[in-house]
């Protein structure tokens, strides 16, 4: 189980990386390699060239800028878990990071890599969507920012264009009144979830971002969250949550298997119950 041969470059600066990517449509970006590595070893992925972006200092920056936290693409799960980077989410991200895969994986696995891989069962995909984060994308032709909800378009499919890479994640500051809940259910510790729900809910503003992950496709962002609570989001949301509406919503999202729907609804209910 060894990879097919690939060419390898480890540029020091972003421009060099973007030039390499721009010049070779079959080049693949690698950060920590914790998702790409297995696929290379299994020869499922056989890129011509790997562009290792971990030597680029700019991608390892972490700072609070105004009302948001900007995390470089090469920040690892362990960096977040250990509190080596600032936080604006009231500890939400730290708690999530600590339960991604295993410590040895978290020491190399990165935020940007995880998002670019667009795995629908990956924690950050749902969590950062619920936190209303944006990703900064760059290519030789420019910079753009995309809301995470628009970034992931399907299973293993992001809106990254050829020659483009994720440089940073912008996480807005969580309001003091916003309550956070995140639940995933896995068959065993550290494995990918088969049920996942992230909830950022603010009874004082009657608003909520509810994201259902670990589906067969891109996470579902509940478009009209109030419907789940009898039309109104208030302080009683934990009790007004209507499982039938949730079940219908998942049915509409194309989940035909009743047991699967039941697990997702249960996870949603518990994420709400846990929200604080």
């Amino acid at each position: 189980m060894k990879p097919a041969p690939f060419d390898y470059a480890r540029p020091r600066d972003l421009d060099a990386a973007l030039t390499l990517l721009g010049n070779n449509a079959s080049a693949k970006v690698m950060a920590g390699g914790q998702s790409l590595g297995p696929m290379l070893n299994l020869r499922l992925a056989q890129p011509e060239q790997i562009v290792d972006i971990t030597a680029i200092d700019e991608l390892k920056l972490a700072e609070i800028s105004g009302d948001e936290l900007v995390l470089g693409a090469c920040i690892t799960h362990a960096d977040i878990e250990d509190g080596r980077v600032p936080d604006v989410t009231g500890g939400a991200m730290r708690g999530v990071a600590a339960n991604i895969a295993y410590r040895a994986v978290r020491n190399r696995g990165t935020l940007g890599g995880s998002l670019s891989h667009a795995d629908p069962a990956a924690d950050w995909v749902s969590v950062l969507t619920a936190l209303d984060a944006r990703v900064a994308l760059r290519s030789t032709s420019g910079v753009r920012q995309v809301a995470l909800g628009d970034f992931i378009v399907g299973a293993l499919q992001s809106c990254l264009k050829s020659g483009e890479l994720v440089t940073a994640v912008h996480v807005p500051k969580r309001a003091a009144t916003a309550q956070w809940g995140y639940i995933k259910t896995c068959r065993k510790t550290g494995e990918f979830a088969h049920g996942q729900c992230a909830v950022l809910i603010d009874p004082t503003t009657a608003s909520a971002r509810i994201v259902i992950g670990a589906l067969d496709a891109a996470p579902v962002v509940v478009a009209e969250p109030a419907e789940l609570f009898g039309g109104r989001i208030d302080a009683n949301y934990k009790t007004t949550f209507d499982v039938r509406v949730a079940d219908r919503l998942l049915g509409d999202a194309g989940i035909v298997d009743a047991a699967q729907r039941h697990i997702h609804v249960t996870v949603m209910q518990r994420a709400l119950r846990e929200a604080a």
Partner: peptide, 29 residues
């Protein structure tokens, strides 16, 4: 020892070597 003493950010093992901007080509079978 928090983080087993680690203070640097980014994937462990990264950021030490010189840049390898000139691509290291692999022989193709």
């Amino acid at each position: 020892e928090v983080g087993a003493g680690r203070t640097a950010l980014g994937p462990v093992g990264s950021g030490h070597g010189a840049a390898a901007s000139e691509t290291q080509a692999a022989p193709k079978p």
